[in-house]
Every structure is written in structure tokens, then in C-alpha cells.
Design a protein around this nucleic acid. Structure first.
Length: 652
RNA sequence: GCCGGCGUAGCUCAGGUGGUUAGAGCGACGGUCUCAUAAUCCGUAGGUCGUAGGUUCGAGUCCUACCGCCGGCACCA
């Protein structure tokens, strides 16, 4: 049985199709901060992270790199682990989906679900168009393909299905009873809307994939992504009595899997549910989504090298409202570093320690401190802890910096450097009061920021003369007056040296290039060979072989876009008029509105499937189809020619 | 198209149940101090609170419409 003082939290299980970047670091840093906060509250905390290593994408990437899937994922998994080490993130359990203990847990979960009647072997059977590689759900035997008009074939395929449909009510009840099961609220609303509109059973195995965990007693099948990956949260603590997790920290793109599928799997298996799911937002790069195709991915290690890990941690948690999207930029990073860390906390530590050395021989003087500051400290500490408890990191840090600024003001107001020249006992005590107040407030601030700035806080802690580890600090240590008179301070040294803006940005950018090159070399050609955004969506298997006669049936033509307009009522559809050399331009509806603006298509040459049977889309007849590369999870890219070609030419 | 969120100083954002001159931090500018990391501290400038109506004695705060942005769903064959 799990003990009440235990806290189990997880990061997502990162997919090993790409090397770690700042986005992975963001989640993991946040988890590390929560881990330290919970420890401060006295919990026995463990943090689990890991790598999700199965699936087609990994299989393909491995082949492309000339490696076996396992060799390949060994490499990337190790790269993730190394990354967390470099960033001083303590991962208590690092679980790989390729580990033997994990396979056992997955099979066990499956068998529990099976035994309880929530898994069935589905014979998907239905109409299938072999030409378009398309399942036509609504068609009956002998019906034509809506795409090409040719007769569909009846196919039957075996898959294991999970009866997700049986859990709609229970899930809604869960969300109702535990309103904070999914945070923030906006994500909860989305999940509610999704579940309320009805749930379909989920296919949880594949026969087309080999790189995965075989289904018990039926090893033609391999578990498909979510059944496999989500179980990691169980396998990371198998045999430890740690389950259920207190918190799954995730990115907003995987909310559905964690908030719908995962609880349903666990309900089906009769296992306890996680207590809470928190989805943070995305880290944008200067308002653009980071992506390989844009080439604007940032890695964490160059930032560590130039400004230190704490600078990165502070920036991410202070600048970004946790739960919302936030943007990263080098300017903002260095700005925050200088104004908040160097000029704020760093300078306060520096001046406080220096003055006590200078005016009191490095010994903390006896005093109760200024009561006004003590009062502010009490209030602001309370506010910060409240915010921390709600994962409102930016708010918590704001409160703490408020206290720093209060202390700075107090120091100027009492100007100890003036009174220190006097031997009047009243003045002597006044100086002591000011110095004690500054040191005690600094002590509290340091302990309070230590979950976010562990490395720097430890340095200040050391300068204040403590021998204990800040890791052992507890919330009760935050009360005013714990600093003892007579404590001997250590020498002062800079904790956050001020950064020159341009040189440090240049240096980070240079290191960023090196780091990118290093990762690329590590992974061989695979980094470049990858699709811009790889997801775990199934990759369509190669269509069946056709003869040249079959190919000739497809009439591809060069067309010129004469007109283009959005199709109202849709996000993705454009209505085009395309001249392919006929008397009238063709009316073609294409799902490319997210990738292309109508005006940039005008006058552009495109490739058209000219003999595709016409079909109405949203009430508009589409007399053909535009040929485009369809990237997984990405935007379509139109086929085009490098040389100019006449309108109407046929492609062979 | 449906559902939800947002639009407040150059930037990032606060502004329960409507009530005197709309706030903070950063940045800019001016000044001050010297314990300190050319830091601190004090002060100044800057906002028709997306637009247009409406309710009200009174609206950034409520209502309606519209515009723009962001999510989710639908849609994308």
C-alpha cells in the first residue's frame, strides 16, 4: 500500500525519434522543480521519466541510420539520460519501454483488461479501396470508392480493441467528482467536450508493426503506442507500492491520451487512477512554433554553458505562465537574467554578505530585525507557497522578488554605511538591525527559491555560513528569526555575474550550432531524414504493387491556378479554378488552406489528378485533386516543377 | 461551421460580485547613493482598456454585434 507521505510524479515518456531539445527540458525542469517543492513539504518524492522506443517511426529511422531498432534507441535513450544529467535534473526512475520489466507490465495490464471483458479481438471488416488505400466505413459490399469511383473490396483485418465506449459515463463521473483531475481548466473543458460527444473503441494492437511488445499468446500482434507507452508509469515503479501517481506532468498535445485513454485502461484493469494530470503549454520561439523545418529548435545545453542551468530554469518558470504557451527568445532570457538574477537576487546576496563582513567581521549580529520587513516576509512567503502549491510558478517568483525589492529598499533607507562610522550605541544597534534583517530575509528568500534555483541557492546558502544542505530545507524553516546571531559567514563571491547581452547571445547561438551538429552526427543521417514532425500516428503501409497499365489509368496534368478562395465554413479547404488546357478551368476543392494563402497560389503551376471522379465537398463540386506531399501531422506541400512546363502537359 | 479562451502602457501581464485621478515588472529618460555585480534607491514619460452600439446615476469590469488572435471539435478523399 502506498504511504501517505509518498509522492510520485512523472514526466511524459519521450519518444525516441528525435534528440532532446528545450521543449523536453522545459517539462523535465518543471518536474524537477515540483519534485524539490514536494520534498520541501516533507514528502518522500520520486520522479519518473523515460523513453518510448517502439513503433514504426523508430523502426524506420533505425533502418535509415543502418542500425537495429534497439541499437538506435539505445543511443537516443542514452542521449536523453545524459541531457538530464548535464542539466542536473534528478530522475529517480528512468524507464525505457524496451526494458523487460516493462513488457511484463504491459502484458499484465492487457490481460487484466481482457479478463474483465474490456478487450476483444475485432475483425475489422469492411470496404476497402485498394487504389486509394482507403477504408470506407459507410460503404456496403460492392459500393464504389468515394474517392476514385472504383469498386471497393471487402477486407477483414484482425486487431485487438479496447472498449473505450464503455467508459464514457465513468470518465465523466471522474471529471465531475474530481474537478482538478485535469488542469488547467481549459484543458479540462476540452476533454469534457470530447468525451461527451461519445467515445469509439480503440484499436490497441497492430500486425503491421514488428518493433513492439508482442501480445500474450498471439505474437502476430504487437501493442500499439498508447497501451505500451502509458504503462510506463506503472512499470517505472513496479514492485514498489508507489502507484498511483500523484501527478502526471504532460504537454498539452497529449492531454487526451492521459485524461481519457489512460484512466479508462486503468479502470478496465481494476487499478487505481492517477490523482492529477497537469498539461503545460508549448514553448514557442519568438512566437513561432519550434520545428525542424523552421530550423528554430533550441537546445538547453548551450544556455547552461553560458548562463548556467539556473538561468534557464528561472527564465522558463518566471517568464512563462505555467499551463499557457510561452515564448523563448535569447533577448528575453538574457534580460531576465540580468535584471532579476544579477541585479536582483545576486546583488542582494553580494551586498548583504559584504556588509556583514565589513561592519561586523563576518558574524551575524544579534537583533530581532525590522518588524516591517519581517511582516512582509511572512506575507510574501505565504503568497509564494500558495502559488507554488497551485503550480503558479511565475506568480510565486513574483512574490519572492517582491521581497527582494523590499529588502533592497530597507537597506537604502537605513544606510548602514553611514551609521557604521558612528560609535553611538544606538547607531551600532541600528546597523546590526539592518544587517540582521537583510541576512535573515536573504536566508528565507534563498530557501524559497531553492526549488527553482538549486545550484545558486546552494551557493548563497554556503556564503551565509550554513553547513546543512538546502535539499533538507523544509517549509517550517521559512519562518522569520531562524538565523542565529553569531553565525560566521563565508567569503562573498558572485553568484550571477552580469552578462554582456550581445556576446552572451552570440556565444549561445554558436554553441547551439555545435550542439545541433553533435546530435546530428550522433544519430547519423537520421536527423535530416526525419519528417519535420514525427508523430506516433500509424504510417500508411506501401500500397500494393501496380502495373504500368494501372498507372496509366491515372491522368496527371499540369494546371495553372487561375483563382483561389477559401471555402466558407471550413478551415482547411480552398476552392480553386485550375486551367489544365481545357475550355473551362476546373473547379477543384483542396484541403490546403492551412498551408497556402489563396493569393500565393494565383499563377502557380500545380499537378492535378484530372480523371478523378468528381465529388462534392461541402456542397462544391471538386473536379479533380491537387497532388501534394502529405506530411504526417504536418501541412501539405504542393508538388511543383523546377523548370517551367506548359499548362495541360501530362505527367508520366 | 460549432464550443471555449483572449484582445489593457514599447514588451510581459494584474485588474472577485460595475463606483473617486486604470496598476505592476521590464525597457526608456532624469536624478541619487556608494554596502553591492556600472548594481541599489527616488522620480518622469507612455494607455480613446480591439471596434461599434446598449444597460446604468456610473463600465476595463455586464449585454449585443462585429473585427483580430489562440485552442478543441467538425472538416481536411
Amino acid at each position: 500500500m502506498k504511504k501517505s507521505d509518498q509522492y510520485y510524479l512523472t514526466t511524459p515518456i519521450y519518444y525516441t525519434n528525435a534528440a532532446p531539445h528545450i521543449g523536453h527540458a522545459y517539462t523535465t525542469i518543471a518536474a524537477d522543480v515540483i519534485r524539490r517543492l514536494k520534498r520541501m513539504q516533507g514528502f518522500d518524492v520520486i520522479l519518473c521519466s523515460g523513453t518510448d522506443e517502439h513503433g514504426v517511426n523508430v523502426e524506420r529511422a533505425a533502418v535509415a541510420a543502418g542500425k537495429t531498432p534497439l541499437d538506435y534507441t539505445n543511443l537516443i535513450s542514452e542521449e536523453f539520460r545524459r541531457q538530464w544529467e548535464i542539466l542536473d535534473l534528478k530522475i529517480d526512475r528512468f524507464q525505457r519501454t524496451t526494458a523487460p520489466n516493462h513488457a511484463e507490465v504491459v502484458r499484465d495490464l492487457f490481460e487484466r483488461c481482457l479478463k474483465n471483458g474490456y478487450v476483444y479481438k475485432g475483425h475489422y471488416s469492411g470496404q476497402y479501396c485498394i487504389y486509394d488505400n482507403l477504408y470506407v466505413n459507410e460503404a456496403k459490399e460492392g459500393d464504389p470508392c468515394p474517392e476514385c469511383g472504383r469498386t471497393t473490396e471487402t477486407v477483414a483485418e484482425e486487431n485487438y480493441f479496447f472498449k473505450l465506449s464503455a467508459f464514457q459515463d465513468r470518465l465523466l463521473e471522474l471529471y465531475e467528482k474530481q474537478p482538478d483531475f485535469i488542469l488547467p481548466e481549459t484543458r479540462r473543458n476540452e476533454v469534457l467536450a470530447f468525451v461527451k460527444q461519445g467515445l469509439q473503441d480503440l484499436s490497441i494492437t497492430r500486425t503491421s508493426i514488428k518493433w513492439g511488445i508482442p501480445v500474450p499468446n498471439d505474437d502476430k500482434h504487437v501493442f500499439y503506442v498508447w497501451f505500451d507507452a502509458l504503462s510506463t508509469y506503472l512499470s517505472a515503479v513496479s514492485g514498489e507500492n508507489r502507484w498511483p501517481a500523484d501527478l502526471h506532468l504532460i504537454g498539452k498535445e497529449i492531454v487526451r491520451f492521459h485524461a481519457v485513454y489512460w484512466p479508462a485502461f486503468l479502470m478496465a484493469a481494476g487499478l487505481p487512477l492517477p490523482k492529477r494530470i497537469f498539461a503545460h503549454g508549448w514553448l514557442l520561439f519568438e512566437n513561432d512554433k519550434m520545428s525542424k523545418s523552421r530550423g528554430n529548435i533550441v537546445r538547453a545545453t548551450p544556455i547552461k554553458t553560458v548562463l548556467g542551468t539556473d538561468a534557464l530554469r528561472y527564465f522558463l518558470l518566471r517568464e512563462v505562465v505555467f499551463g499557457q504557451d510561452g515564448s523563448f527568445s535569447y533577448d528575453a532570457l538574457v534580460g531576465r537574467y540580468n535584471s532579476d538574477l544579477a541585479n536582483g537576487l545576486g546583488n542582494l546576496a553580494s551586498r548583504t554578505v559584504a556588509m556583514i563582513h565589513q561592519y561586523r567581521g563576518g558574524i551575524v549580529p544579534a537583533s530581532d530585525g525590522h518588524q516591517q520587513v519581517a511582516q512582509s516576509a511572512k506575507e510574501l512567503t505565504g503568497a509564494a507557497l500558495d502559488a507554488y502549491a497551485k503550480f503558479e510558478f511565475s506568480k510565486a517568483l513574483e512574490s519572492i522578488w517582491n521581497l527582494i525589492s523590499t529588502v533592497d529598499r530597507m537597506i537604502v533607507e537605513h544606510a548602514p554605511w553611514k551609521l557604521a562610522k558612528s560609535t553611538d550605541p544606538v547607531h551600532v544597534q541600528a546597523v546590526s538591525d539592518t544587517l540582521y534583517t537583510a541576512a535573515e530575509a536573504l536566508r528565507i528568500v534563498t530557501a524559497l527559491v531553492s526549488p527553482v534555483l538549486p545550484e545558486s541557492a546552494a551557493k548563497i546558502w554556503d556564503q551565509l555560513g550554513f553547513d546543512t544542505s538546502l535539499d533538507d530545507a523544509r517549509e517550517s524553516d521559512l519562518h522569520w528569526g531562524h538565523l542565529r546571531a553569531g553565525q560566521k559567514l563565508r567569503d562573498a563571491y558572485g553568484v550571477f555575474p552580469r552578462a554582456e547581452v550581445k556576446p552572451s547571445i552570440d556565444q549561445m547561438k554558436a554553441l547551439e550550432k555545435e550542439e545541433y551538429a553533435r546530435q546530428q552526427t550522433l544519430l547519423g543521417k537520421t536527423v535530416e531524414a526525419e519528417a519535420p514532425k514525427a508523430t506516433d500516428a500509424p504510417i500508411a503501409p506501401l500500397a500494393p504493387a501496380i502495373s504500368i497499365d494501372d498507372f496509366v489509368k491515372v491522368d496527371l496534368r499540369v494546371g495553372l491556378v487561375k483563382a483561389a478562395a477559401p471555402l466558407k465554413g471550413t478551415d482547411k479547404l480552398l476552392h480553386l479554378q485550375v486551367d489544365i488546357g481545357e475550355a473551362e478551368p476546373r473547379s477543384i476543392v483542396a484541403g490546403i488552406a492551412l498551408a497556402y494563402k489563396p493569393e500565393e497560389l494565383l499563377g502557380r503551376k500545380v499537378v492535378i489528378v484530372a480523371n478523378l471522379a468528381p465529388r462534392k465537398l461541402r456542397g462544391v463540386e471538386s473536379q479533380g485533386m491537387i497532388v501534394a506531399a502529405s506530411l504526417e501531422g504536418g501541412l501539405p506541400v504542393l508538388a511543383a516543377f523546377l523548370e517551367d512546363v506548359p499548362v495541360g502537359s501530362r505527367l508520366k
